[in-house]
């Protein structure tokens, strides 16, 4: 018995889906990246200026330097978190397409089996 399974169509579906996910996420986060890098650069410039003009003393300058480092680390953590979300979407979309294809093929061959996609672990 031949099971109908269009591998080229499935491959194309995966490519199109991944392209869609990547393009959506990248365009969504570009404004965030721009805004963050501008905010961090603005803060660095302000610290330099406030130090040069005597607006802040050494203790306050040191606090702002430490705070800038913390903000930069937080920005990188956020980038990692957003990247993981994109990986999650891509992975789950690919699993969904492949499992869907298996079930469609089995159904077309009148084989009464439905293979469930395992759900995500909750913790």
């Amino acid at each position: 018995m031949t099971i109908p399974f269009d591998t080229e169509a499935i491959g194309k579906d995966i490519v199109d889906t991944l392209n869609g996910i990547l393009n959506d996420d990248i365009s969504r986060y570009v404004s965030f990246f721009k805004s963050q890098t501008l905010g961090l650069a603005k803060q660095a410039a302000w610290i330099a200026e406030a130090t040069a003009t005597g607006e802040i003393d050494a203790d306050t300058r040191d606090w702002f330097i430490g705070n800038l480092q913390r903000m930069t680390e937080d920005f990188i953590r956020t980038l990692v978190g957003l990247t993981l979300l994109t990986i999650e979407k891509a992975w789950n979309a690919v699993v969904g397409i492949l499992w869907g294809a298996i079930n469609t093929a089995l159904d077309a061959a009148s084989i009464p089996i439905q293979i469930p996609v395992p759900s995500a672990p909750s913790s």
Binding site: G11, L18, N19, E88, V94, V117, A120
Partner: peptide, 23 residues
């Protein structure tokens, strides 16, 4: 880019085939 990584993705999916949650 997607085509280049497709075999890797499919291989990884076949290895486990489990939906994941990363956040």
């Amino acid at each position: 880019t997607c085509v280049r990584f497709l075999p890797l993705v499919i291989a990884a999916v076949v290895l486990t085939a489990c939906a994941i949650k990363l956040a």
